[in-house]
Design a protein around this nucleic acid. Structure first.
Lengths: 200, 200, 200, 200
DNA sequence: AATGAATGAGAGTTCATTCAT
DNA sequence: CATGAATGAACTCTCATTCAT
């Protein structure tokens, strides 16, 4: 509260603006003006515009890294993956807006170091869900499972439901996909595992 | 082929660069230099940078509109939706890079008229898949179904499989999701139909 | 009618646009578009944008030159000047919009050869009204006399009366100023002044 | 003098250049180069090219507004108008070059907000001189009276006399016109006119 | 801890003009 | 008589960044 107050206000404002208008379309002038300080003041706290994003990211990526660490300490398998998904849904929800920046600004961020880091972390998480020997469809199901808990808020924005219910539905569908992937894996050699999906 | 050579070369180069570096990060100077002409030459063919994107889009959105028209001519129902998904996969594949621009540049494009058009067309298609009275999870499944055939190439880019197989897998998973959504719908009154998905 | 049709349409359109928006703010593209032809077509008829203005001017400056010639053929004196003013009012009225271009675009035209020509012609006319040995105030009155018949339409635009009455009033005031100038000259012992100028 | 040095140098240079070459024909590059700074430095002090003109204007229009306020505090009538004219000549003289910009650049400035403001202020002043029920000629005389003290320097530029004498002559002629206007009013039964205006 | 002033690079856009066809 | 294509120069303006104070 005493130290770093301004620094924090900068990151907060930046997150708000980056999310609302995109990283590239948010200028340092805007950030500074929103805070009632000068650009130079921002530069006192951050060497670079990119540094703001980096700080933003570092503050918020930890739960994901913690989740990765947790998974690495468990025996791999369906139940671990399912529990991981549940945890991801629970812990990553409030972080989502940050990730929206990466999703929405692929073009703008392609050259930033932090974007590579983000991709690496996400890939690391993904790799713990994927069985490289499984068939393509199953891999896709896993990717989708993560993606749906990750991105449901954005994806459903057009439909407009309460965020809480959305997340519950997203988790349900995600688990469904995971289960489906695992069952395909289980029925080794069967390319489609089609009967598993038949409603009964 | 004979007429409009330069104009076409502009759109092609622009598509390549917009996809590779993002819309905002691609300057008209770059486009012009890639073509060995001056910026002014580009402006002879397109009144605006945005116009290039608009032309790009107009050339390529037609199959989606055709699909929408086709669906509107069919009786709504699971089999129509499934066939629509198959057609989408077949006809939209070669268009995907364009859409990647929209996906990747949400931030940069938010204010462009063409982005709104894109969203409108996509929403129109989506609405033909969604049953507004179905439960949230089923709606999500439909969204995902479209999204996976639409975005699989990008989503799997990190895994790097042959595009052809990818699309087949994406379609399989998408159909699976559609079926799952319809089965939930079928079990009217049951909010979750959760056991139906359990692999047995 | 057969030859030069397009040429004439160009000058007419140019006059309209130059008057409405200013010379500099009117681009050749606009002129061409208003006519439904290409810029290159305009360049077929005029080597230069300035050439259009020059042609416009040449077509319309003749009455002023004729007036100058007429004055030079008369004995200098109050009655000649008064008659000249009357003729100016009568013959220059329909030309005024062209001169508005020069008045309104001093900045824009300062470097154009035609602007110098315009100034020279006007100066030539003025010199026939001015007695270089008269006192400053009288010279000013003469300048004003010409200026008021010349510019009354523009000057009174804000008040908004019928053009015809405006011109009558302008001429009346202009003659008044001339008379006043001459009477001052007379009172200082000038040989040219006649009794006709005394008010009443 | 100590603070705002650069800002002031910008407005001064801009005034000089706007006057010499016209607003449109003066580029920011030129202004910057004349000052030995970069374009961006100019943009640090003024958000817009138009802003420079606006600042220029705001600094200099005050005497005119003060004059308007003074007139509004007086009883309307010939002597007030005459005194107002004298004050205008005294206080507005050093401001004239600015107004020359507006006079000379009608075309270029038509769309600038500041030009509308200028016209409004001038119209406000004019309205205090004009009797809307007077005859057209008298209205013209009033307009001319203002115009001649306002524009004499420019109008007489071709004749080239000492500015001081010019202004005296301009004021004399202007007062003459005012008197003439009021006497006409009197002869038509207006209550304000006094015998002082009758020539002799 | 923060400011005011300035910079260099580059963006999109517009214009008058040219020339082969 | 006219077009389509292209150019070079200029323009206003914005941005991330630096630095002395």
């Amino acid at each position: 509260m005493t130290a770093g107050t301004t620094r924090d206000r900068i990151t907060q404002t930046a997150l708000k603006l980056f999310t609302a208008k995109g990283y590239d379309k948010t200028s340092l002038r805007e950030i500074a003006e929103h805070l009632g300080v000068t650009k130079a003041a921002v530069y006192y706290h951050f060497k670079t515009k990119e540094d703001i994003l980096t700080a933003l990211f570092a503050e918020r990526i930890r739960p994901v890294e913690a989740l990765i660490a947790w998974m690495q300490g468990q025996a791999p398998g369906p139940s671990t993956r399912q529990e991981a998904l549940r945890r991801y849904a629970a812990e990553v929800a409030h972080v989502t807006p940050l990730f929206g920046i990466f999703q929405d600004n692929g073009g703008a961020l392609r050259n930033l170091a932090i974007a590579a880091t983000y991709r690496d972390v996400m890939k690391g998480l993904m790799d713990l869900f994927l069985d490289p020997e499984a068939d393509l469809a199953s891999q896709l199901r896993c990717v989708l499972a993560l993606l749906v808990v990750h991105g449901a808020p954005q994806a459903l924005a057009g439909i407009g439901n309460s965020t809480k219910e959305e997340r519950a539905a997203a988790l349900a569908v995600a688990l469904e996909l995971l289960v489906s992937a695992d069952s395909a894996r289980f029925l080794l050699g069967d390319a489609h595992a089609s009967e598993a999906q038949l409603p009964l």
